[in-house]
Write a protein that binds this DNA or RNA. Structure first.
Lengths: 184, 184
DNA sequence: AGTCATAGTTAGATAATCTAATTATTATTG
DNA sequence: CAATAATAATTAGATTATCTAACTATGACT
């Protein structure tokens, strides 16, 4: 990021990708037998959107030097401030990742002073994780962008569309939730 | 995957993740000033959905020993069969990734015999990439699942909802397309 | 006291990316 | 036409986010 060696980098310029049209075309060729092409077509768009929505969020968070996974962890810790103490295992369960992955994320966040670990007095196997004041400051700085990026995902849907879309989102949410089995 | 050492693996069972509710709650606390909480709330759901839609596809493709990125590459090659010859640079442009990443993906696919590389006669810097008959066979085997997973993403939306959602998807698609600048 | 279970970590792997540098090869141009 | 530029692919090395298995304490149960 800081080095800029002599030869000025043999630009591999980041061209915009092709989009979904070709896949729709392939669909028309190969899914001929399939009953509802319309659903497939819409699913393809959803898949494409999913990829790009995550990208957009990544790009918007990048200037803060944080990624979504890490922000998620900080947000979770922030939510738990003042409630029950939270441990790596608890974090793993709530984020749906393994304890080993939590260890890695915490190491990274701790190195930057955004979280702290403290051994439990009662059960010395356990660790209590806390967000630090610096961590909180970072979150405060990031959140406005985070929310506005969220809001921007709706694009230019008008009021009426938003209303319908809200309901649809609810349905999609529940359907995927059952599909992957979210608890609580 | 095959080893099952004595101690039967200290289960870190994969618990279902917490879902978005806590984030909605956090939003209510911290985005108080923000004009349209509703949009933010919907954006959060979209973000959550995006993550999980990609997961669902991953899970459904896993049994075929292939991931979405790799399938994408095979589909692209299949689409180009019989048209212009395609090179790693071309693939990189169309998939929106770097040439170095294409090299890595091609290595992986070539090792399994699903694509082949052939040096161009005209310009010996260039390589022509082709999907092999085995690669095509794999794609043929995977596609039905791929399409049905796409279709399944719509969940149980009824006919009317599908109609409206189709329009909304179109708008969202275009809005993100301009945001990230898709070419062609 | 001995066995078992739990919490966290470590070790080592994989996937999908990236940037920078390197190697060929072709194109341009004084 | 010889030197310099540009282009195509690759390599080298890194990062992020995961995973599984194994290991180390520590606590609990019999």
């Amino acid at each position: 990021m800081e080095r800029k060696t002599a030869k000025e980098c043999t630009a591999d310029q980041q061209l915009p990708a092709l989009g979904i049209r070709p896949y729709l075309e392939l669909m028309d060729k190969t899914a001929a037998d399939h009953a509802d092409r319309k659903s497939i077509r819409m699913g393809l768009v959803m898949l494409w959107l999913s990829d790009n929505i995550l990208d957009v969020m990544d790009v918007d968070l990048a200037p803060f030097g944080i990624t979504e996974s890490k922000l998620d962890m900080l947000l979770l810790l922030m939510l738990h401030e003042g409630r029950e103490l939270i441990t790596p295992s608890g974090i793993a369960d709530r984020l749906g990742i393994r304890r080993a992955s939590v260890t890695a994320l915490l190491d990274w966040l701790e190195k930057r002073g955004w979280v702290s670990r403290e051994q439990s007095a009662k059960d010395r196997r356990m660790i209590h994780v806390n967000i630090t004041p610096e961590g909180r400051a970072l979150v405060d700085q990031v959140l406005p962008t985070f929310w506005s990026t969220c809001a921007s995902l709706l694009g230019d849907l008008d009021a009426e569309e938003r209303g319908v879309f809200e309901k649809i989102l609810g349905k999609l949410h529940r359907s995927i939730e059952t599909r992957i089995g979210v608890g609580r």
